[in-house]
Amino acid sequence: MAGSATDQVFQFGGFTLDLGKGTLGRAEQPAFLRPKAYALLTHLARHIGRVVPKSELMDAVWPGVFVTEDSLTQSIREIRKVLGEETIRTVSKRGYMLIPEPVPEPGAQPIVAVLRFRNDGADPADEAIVDGIAEDIINGLARFGTLTVLARNSSFSFASYSPGEWPVVRSCIGADYVVEGSVRRQADSIVCAVNLIDAASASQLWGDRYQADYAGLSAIQQEIVEKIVGRLVVRVNNAGLQRASRQPVASLAAHELVLRGVALLRDPAQSELKEAAAFFEAAIVRDPAHGLAYTYLALSHVLNSEFGPSSDAVLTKARDLADRGIALSPDQATAHRIQSLVRLNMRDHEAAEHHLRIALELNPGDAD
């Protein structure tokens, strides 16, 4: 079965390889490779970020034909001449690796890679179920908008339960955190285990196991994914907050400033709401387009009313801030959820329900 259009497009070294169109180029300027070199690049692209053994490459490009490693070396040399020397890395005694596009600078949103889950069952036909759960987790995490989730093209190049590859995941595709797991279909149920790994230290931050009755596959997948996704987001945000708390405020990125402010808002005592607002204001100075900073600043104004009714002026300011957050992050459920709360305080019940329904539609897995 042919993959989707996004599964056929790869980016590396400033070049774009579109397998569906059969094109290779950079900045709309086409680049050309001979057929064998193109076939070799295609196989490396399908496994981007993974070390591909020489034997596998030779079998893929010259199937059923005896050739020496010189043919492989010559094609690699041709690709490097066109794409640049640093695009393909030689890993001694193992093979070659195609390096993906550089990832954003550290200090912004955390980057998460959901690896391909392992099929612990006896039936290879269950691979579709296993991949489906991992893909649903990718999609579920992406709904929150508070972290960057790598596409399956990059993350599925690595297998779960391979600790030796975790540092490679970080160096090749820039992941701060790795999600790995396994799925096993038993007689009447599906069991899914999932772990969250800090890619820098290769240490496990969290892990859990989920089981659901095997009756209506799609419902089972949804049930398991909903349980996993929310917990993953909380753990990733908590890990990011711990990192941010160890750094001086002046060095924090906008996302980290927002995390610090949200932590103060969630303190049951809510005794430092003004300090929370200061974090959000600093985040806006650092990044004027950070929608969540405006959103949470609006919430801090509503909460900072000594638990009594907010004045019309405060609510109007909060409404305007929440509107700004929605304008900058229209697909962010949190922005609509907090605008709903502001409108509820304004006794504008119709608007409150409207924004809450949008929030639910954007991210039904958000516990808040």
Rank of each mutant, 00 (worst) to 15 (best):
E272K: 12
R324I: 00
L292S: 04
A244W: 03
L328I: 11
P248Q: 12
L315W: 08
A313L: 13
L299T: 01
V234H: 09
V262W: 00
Q242I: 11
P268C: 13
E275F: 04
S300T: 03
Q247N: 06
Q270T: 04
Q339V: 00
I284R: 01
L321C: 05
T316Y: 09
Q242M: 11
A289E: 11
A254E: 08
V314F: 01
A239K: 08
A277H: 10
I338Q: 01
H255W: 08
D312N: 10
L259F: 07
E306K: 09
A269E: 15
R260T: 01
A250S: 14
L265D: 06
T334N: 05
T334F: 02
I284Y: 00
H301Q: 13
T334L: 10
R319S: 13
D320Q: 12
D323T: 04
K274L: 12
V249H: 05
Y294K: 00
S329D: 13
V233D: 06
R319G: 06
V234N: 09
N237P: 00
S311L: 08
E272V: 01
T295N: 03
S329T: 11
A277Y: 08
R246P: 00
G308E: 14
S251Y: 06
S305W: 04
P330E: 11
P268N: 14
L297W: 06
H290N: 12
V285F: 03
L303K: 08
Y294S: 01
P309N: 12
I326W: 04
T316P: 00
T316Q: 14
R235N: 15
R337K: 12
F279V: 00
N304F: 06
G325L: 07
F279R: 03
A254S: 15
I338S: 02
S245P: 05
G261Y: 04
L297Y: 05
L252P: 01
A318F: 02
L241M: 10
L299W: 09
S271N: 13
G261N: 08
L303R: 11
I326L: 09
F280P: 01
A313F: 07
K317R: 15
L292Q: 09
A250V: 12
V285M: 06
A293Y: 06
K274W: 04
H301W: 09
G325K: 02
A298S: 15
N238I: 01
L273R: 03
D312P: 00
R266A: 10
F279N: 06
K274M: 11
K274N: 12
